[in-house]
Amino acid sequence: MAEFKEIIMPFKNTPGGIIQAFHAVQKKINYLPENAIIDAAEVFGIPVKEAYGVATFYSYFSIKPRGKYIIRICESAPCHVAGAAEIIASLERELGIKIGETTGDGKFTMELTECVGQCQATPVITINGKPYAGVTPQQVAEILAEYE
């Protein structure tokens, strides 16, 4: 588990460093395993329950293993009204998983998110942070193909 400490250490003396440290861990493995949380608690000198609180407070952290590509569907009002539900249905059909799940090959995870600031063309999804605006259900397969 030394690897987590190595990732976390550089943020030790930064204010709010634990959040940056968690981002750094997630960049490597897409989620925050228990040992990363335990190590962070040790590095930042806080109880594990607090580090766990931080890890579960922000929706962009996940404590469950996630796929290589994280698809996040915006569920804020404008996207919702523009038909986010149909995009979700289409993604679920294509990938055979539901929101919060990961495909069997560990490739894709589906999650909901709040407004990502791309409301000029709704609905919006992001894949590993890359936004796709004004998505239609028909485009879904095409977008996914980019990640084959």
Binding site: P47, V48, K49, E50, Y52, G53, T56, F57
Partner: peptide, 13 residues
Amino acid sequence: SEFQSVNALGLEN
């Protein structure tokens, strides 16, 4: 946490 310093309980989500 404060009376007992055990830190067994915390907030999730």
